[in-house]
Design a protein around this nucleic acid. Sequence first.
DNA 1: TTGTAGGCGTTATCAT
DNA 2: ATGATAACGCCTACAA
Lengths: 338, 338
Amino acid sequence: MTPRRRDSATIKDVAREAGVSYSTVSRALNDSPLVNDRTKRKILTVAKRLNYRPNVHAQGLARGRSHMLGFVVPDLRGTLLMEVVEGAERALAEAGYRALLLHTEWELEIEKEHVEYLRSSRIGGAILCPIGRDEEVPWLRRLAREGFPVVLVDRYFPRLEASHVVTDNVLGGRLATEHLLRREHRSIVCLSDAESHLVTSLADRMQGFRETAGEAGLGPDQAKVVTFDLQSEVPREFPTLRRLLEGSQRPRAIFAVNDIFAMAVYQTMSRMGISSGEIDLVGFDDARMAPFMPLPWSSVAQPKEDIGRRAAQILIEMIDRGSGHIVRESLPPSLIVR
Amino acid sequence: MTPRRRDSATIKDVAREAGVSYSTVSRALNDSPLVNDRTKRKILTVAKRLNYRPNVHAQGLARGRSHMLGFVVPDLRGTLLMEVVEGAERALAEAGYRALLLHTEWELEIEKEHVEYLRSSRIGGAILCPIGRDEEVPWLRRLAREGFPVVLVDRYFPRLEASHVVTDNVLGGRLATEHLLRREHRSIVCLSDAESHLVTSLADRMQGFRETAGEAGLGPDQAKVVTFDLQSEVPREFPTLRRLLEGSQRPRAIFAVNDIFAMAVYQTMSRMGISSGEIDLVGFDDARMAPFMPLPWSSVAQPKEDIGRRAAQILIEMIDRGSGHIVRESLPPSLIVR
DNA sequence: TTGTAGGCGTTATCAT
DNA sequence: ATGATAACGCCTACAA
């Protein structure tokens, strides 16, 4: 094989230069106790001088594993999830790992490809924020069954044998509802997505809403759920909301299952000339634009960074301990009152 | 060396099973013309049956390079940059590359570490969105000098010998200003960050503003620039803006160098009871929350996806052609009138 | 404490 | 068209 230009010094170069064998260099570099201190220092000096850098491929090949993990998300534009990623990466970095961030563009097929890729690239494990429904993810099941370390974040599949870290969304729905009840409302509307039954996080928030309202003695008429398809209504300026808010019978308290819906409510109110004092609004996610809004609404904040951190810790533990022990955690959100 | 559990079949396994030598398998897998068609088909069948996956470390070691590139950004929460990343990754994927996304948390030291890491991991090249000032990035200079393929996005250093792809921010400033001039304003305020002179993109937008205003015959009093530190003013509700907007002398036309500033203006107007019709506002970046705002303002949209795509293409070209040819591109933004 | 040598899974250069 | 074999750079059991 034609020797190509080498991009950097190898341990052999260092060994020659330092006058020792290259296994000694290897030991020194991995700071094994089996090296004389003076030898080690000399080797490190030489290594530095030669600008030596370990070749991760050679290391990966020899060690049979890499320090690279995977993080698969639907897209990169969701601030919320990106904060989870940042939290995870901080924890991973501390443990000497890196994460390859892959995004699926909300396509099941791409998600599958990514998972395949993670397997073949000898990546040691992954954090996933899956899309799709339980039944549609056979490869996830296979992954878990094969013992590939996986931690799900933000979403989970009740019937999937895999670790996950999520916000306690039921509690979140509860916090929001209690907040409105505390403000003497006896009639509350919960605003959610038309597909919310497919998304565990939204479904859980709504459950928290229903439970709390029920316990407070609110009947079905006083704890109504209104849903619509956000995507299709944006260009038409939220007809469902206009209908909801017109007339004097309009709700005085609204729990929006996320801040996008809350923004939509606020925009519609504003355009219909409804003063902000007329409606108590609680959102979810504590979106970043909140401090810039003319009327900041209250919002349930998810422990995004912590979710990432915990997911990373659990993943690392699975890898290091080689344990297939499944951990399921729901981290408590907190209410931000504005 | 203790043989460890192998995670997947190797070409040797495939070779044994198919009854050929493993070099033939290698050729078949890389679909070389030097293999009999029937043999190749058989090998591929066996490979599939054994669930063979190439070991990227072995490939990387043997080939001396990997298909992995790097993408270094300050943080992951900026939607704008993430769209650039998505664009780049689409182009990279088409060419069979992947990108390792690293974020520096706006720390020069971390940026440096990442760049070091990219070198040592035999990553073939990188797209960077650098922080810091020209003088503070000696490692960037070294990288470029060493012939490591690098493309800068979103920001550039005028005196750095490296390729870059950015928005034509001067043109952007011009578009915004022309828009306001077209609406008969003879007095315009440009709102920017206190540190804008350190950020080429903002500086360029302001230059576009000044040039255009000057050409239209506006004097210094009619084309004023107001700057403040956003971070420190958020919690105090933008005192600089309040001052600017109070009194009847308030500006009737404002060009905000990004949509965060535009939001701040809008919020302040709203709180001061200034009706939205009183001020013509143009922002920059076409932020995603725009369609949800009660009063959507006009904004200069950057060709985010294209920036990523072009950066990727240029990077791949540098790698494949082995050329150190430097490419500097400014892509035109477009005005979104609302 | 240090050196020697075999192996990790591929690729590529020889032969055949 | 195929097979044998030497790299690639590193790790590590074993010998010294």
